[in-house]
């Protein structure tokens, strides 16, 4: 019974894609053959087509009041078109701020690194840390590092996937 329901849902999903014309050409051909030869597919196709036509033709747009355009134009009269965001957000300012932070961090790190005594490894700037108190070898071992690396790889792939998906969608939207 459950399997039957699932099959019905799968058939309907494919048929909707066929009706919308959003499935690949191979699938279009396969589905049109199934509609021709299979009674269940034919019956479902007729049912969904009727619904599709009904949605396209029978749902009317709502009509706002007669004064709607006039009201909007009255409201608009009191406002001005704002300048495009890209005009007032100057990228060079953002880059400048980033550069200042980068230079500051590099300078601090560089100073700390060069002030380390070459033989003792101590520095007057960095706080002294008694490393003997912290024994993290039982926590940070090769297994933990592998897990962290794996998590990072997964996060990286998810991020890459979202970027590629967004690019693909933006290309599809362009008229």
């Amino acid at each position: 019974m459950e399997q039957n329901l699932q099959t019905n849902e799968e058939i309907e999903m494919q048929l909707w894609e066929y009706i919308d014309g959003s499935c690949p050409i191979n699938d279009m051909q396969r589905i049109s053959i199934l509609i021709e030869r299979n009674t269940l597919w034919k019956q479902k196709y007729d049912e969904l087509s009727a619904l599709h036509t009904s949605f396209s033709t029978n749902v009317e747009l709502e009509q706002p009041s007669m004064r709607f355009t006039a009201n909007v134009m009255d409201a608009v009269a009191a406002t001005h078109v704002a300048p495009a965001t890209k005009k007032y957000i100057n990228k060079s300012i953002i880059r400048g701020i980033a550069a200042v932070f980068f230079v500051m961090l590099t300078a601090i790190f560089g100073y700390a690194l060069f002030s380390v005594h070459p033989t003792t490894g101590t520095t007057s700037m960095l706080p002294k840390l008694d490393t003997s108190k912290f024994n993290l070898s039982h926590v940070i071992n090769s297994e933990t590092i592998m897990i962290i690396v794996a998590i990072n790889i997964v996060i990286g792939l998810v991020f890459l996937d979202s970027i590629l998906r967004r690019k693909k969608e933006q290309q599809a939207v362009k008229p």
Partner: peptide
């Protein structure tokens, strides 16, 4: 709906024509 049209007017310069 009126609010939508007023916002659209205010930010019309931001419509880049990509869509």
């Amino acid at each position: 709906a009126q609010d939508v049209f007023v916002k659209a007017y205010r930010y019309l310069a931001d419509f880049k024509g990509n869509s």
